[in-house]
Design a protein around this nucleic acid. Sequence first.
DNA 1: GGATATGATTGATT
DNA 2: AATCAATCATATCC
Length: 240
Amino acid sequence: MRLDNMLLAEGVSGPEKGGGSAAAAAAAAAAGGSPNDGSIEHSDYRAKLAQIRQIYHSELEKYEQACSEFTNHVMNLLREQSRTRPISPKEIERMVGIIHRKFSTIQMQLKQSTCEAVMILRSRFLDARRKRRNFNKQATEVLNEYFYSHLSNPYPSEEAKEELAKKCAITVSQVSNWFGNKRIRYKKNIGKFQEEANLYAVKTAVDAASVSAQASQANSPATPNSGGYPAPCYTPDGRL
DNA sequence: GGATATGATTGATT
DNA sequence: AATCAATCATATCC
């Protein structure tokens, strides 16, 4: 029963939405090529699902046909035998019941394997990790800028995250993911990120300098930083 | 082609 | 609920 519900939920065993649905989905997937905005893998997924559904239905039909054929055959045999020996209707009923049970277990197996196929398809297509795309240059610029200019406490508030998300054209949870990854990877070996850190430190320093230069007439534009860099001080956290 | 970078997911922790 | 740490699956680089 669980299998039935599952297949129904996935739209495999439900009412067939016209035989051409699979073809239509496939055609849509093949024709529309440009907008990579999520629609493509979705239609691809749907096409594959439709394929599974088609196989499922044709197999199911085959089984049903075989079942009725076999039942007929047995009935004929019994009828023939009834001329030589008395056969009670109960016995016939029993035989039919046995046959139907046999075939329903076979159908069960079909349903199970179909379920498995659907699950595999799901994990294959709906797992976002499989269609990962890197953020564009300026998005990572913005994120890195924030990260390195808040290195002592790189935990943007909800509002800050929303701002960053807007600037980078990504979602808030993507911003959270990015900061989570960045923090852990930064602290994992700070050395590897030193260059990047310096780069963004200089960048923000230059920005600050240009801002102050607008206020007070510029004095030393060549050396943006006195002495060392502002010491990356994001110690991984209190807990050791 | 493998090494590395990177975004996303998962399970644990608080 | 937010974050960490490990891990997965893909992108990108060489």
